[in-house]
Write a protein that binds this DNA or RNA. Structure first.
Length: 304
DNA sequence: TTTACTGT
C-alpha cells in the first residue's frame, strides 16, 4: 500500500471519529478517568463486586461506547454534532436551536429517581457554541415562548449531571407553553418514556420543522417568528421519530409531527402520526438509516 | 406528573 493511500485512510478514520467526538466539552479532559472510573482496587478486576460495578457504571462523560449506543442506528446528519453524557445533538447555528437530538432510553434510565432534582437545574447558555450563534436566556424572556427541551429532562434520571446537561440552551427551542409544551408535547414525551415498558431499548430523535404553507397569492412560503437579540427561530412544528427494540430484537418505528401551537387536551396522540419519510423530507435528515430492513416489524403500529 | 412562566 502506498504512503499516500495510508495517509488518506488515516484522514478518513479521523473524520469518522470526529463525527462522534465533535464539540463534546469534557471527554478530552476526563476520558482517561472515565475509561477507568473511580474504582479503588483496579486493575485487579476480581476484587470489585458486581453491585459496585453497576452503581459506578453510570457514564458521567460522553464516552465513545455510550455515544455509539445512542447512535446505534445512524446519524441523521453531521452538522455541528455535540455529544453529552446521555444524549447527542446537532446544532443549527443559523436558527440557534438544534437540528436534531438523539436519545437512548431504557426502563432504568427513565425510572423515578429521588436523588435527581429537576428544580435544581438551571437553563444555561452553551459556552461551546460560538457567541454569534449562541442563544441566551434573555432571548426567551417575555417572548411568550417556553424554553422547550428537545432532549427532555424527564428522560435523563440516572444522574443529576445527566439532567443538568439537558438544560443547555443549545438543547432548547421556543415552544408555545400552555397548551403545547406543558400539554400535548409533554404527553408525547411521556408516551415515549412509557414505550420503555414494552421495549427493552427505545431510541428517539427529536427536532424542529419549518413547514411551508400557501398564502393568498397562491404561492408557498416558509414563515416563522424569531425572538430576542439573537433572533432565535420559532419552529412551526416539532417532530419525534422513535424506534423501540423488542425482546425478540424486532424494531418498531413511530413518527409524530405536532404544530407549535395550542393543541386541545382531548386530541389523541395518533392524530399526529405521520410516515417517517414525511419527516425526513421536511427536515432534510435521514433517520435510523443503519436499520436492517428485515428487522423492522412495524411503522406507526402497522406491520411492514 | 411534568412542563415551565413572570415578578419579586
Amino acid at each position: 500500500m502506498s504512503g499516500l493511500r495510508v495517509r488518506g485512510l488515516l484522514a478518513l478514520s479521523a473524520t469518522a471519529l470526529g463525527a462522534y467526538y465533535l464539540g463534546s466539552r469534557t471527554e478530552r479532559l476526563q476520558q482517561s478517568s472515565d475509561v477507568f472510573p473511580r474504582l479503588p482496587g483496579l486493575p485487579t478486576f476480581g476484587t470489585v463486586s458486581a453491585a459496585s460495578l453497576v452503581a459506578s457504571n453510570v457514564n458521567l462523560t460522553a464516552t465513545p461506547s455510550r455515544i455509539s449506543e445512542i447512535m446505534k442506528f445512524g446519524f441523521p446528519g453531521l452538522d455541528n454534532v455535540r455529544s453529552h453524557s446521555d444524549y447527542v445533538l446537532s446544532y443549527d447555528r443559523r436558527n440557534r436551536i438544534p437540528h436534531w437530538v438523539f436519545e437512548h432510553l431504557t426502563a432504568e434510565s427513565v425510572a423515578k429517581n429521588d436523588s435527581v432534582d429537576r428544580s435544581k437545574c438551571d437553563f444555561k447558555p452553551d459556552e461551546s457554541i460560538h457567541p454569534f450563534f449562541r442563544s441566551q436566556n434573555t432571548d426567551y424572556r417575555k417572548s411568550g415562548f417556553d424554553r422547550g427541551h428537545m432532549a427532555a429532562a424527564g428522560n435523563h434520571r440516572l444522574h443529576q449531571k445527566h439532567c443538568e446537561e439537558t438544560f443547555y440552551l443549545s438543547n432548547m427551542a421556543p415552544q408555545v407553553g400552555q397548551g403545547f409544551n406543558r400539554d400535548a408535547w409533554n404527553s408525547l414525551e411521556m408516551h415515549v418514556r412509557k414505550l420503555t415498558k414494552s421495549y427493552s431499548n427505545v431510541y428517539v430523535c427529536t427536532g424542529p420543522l419549518y413547514l411551508p404553507h400557501k398564502e393568498d397569492d397562491g404561492k408557498m412560503y416558509v414563515k416563522y417568528e424569531v425572538i430576542g437579540s439573537n433572533t432565535v427561530a420559532v419552529p412551526t412544528h416539532f417532530y419525534k421519530v422513535i424506534v423501540g427494540e423488542a425482546a425478540d430484537h424486532k424494531l418498531h418505528m413511530e413518527a409524530y409531527v405536532m404544530p407549535n401551537k395550542v393543541i386541545s387536551n382531548d386530541t389523541p396522540l395518533n392524530v399526529f402520526q405521520v410516515p417517517p419519510e414525511t419527516v425526513e423530507r421536511a427536515a432534510g435528515l435521514l433517520f435510523f438509516d443503519q436499520i436492517n430492513r428485515n428487522q423492522l416489524a412495524s411503522i406507526n403500529g402497522r406491520k411492514v
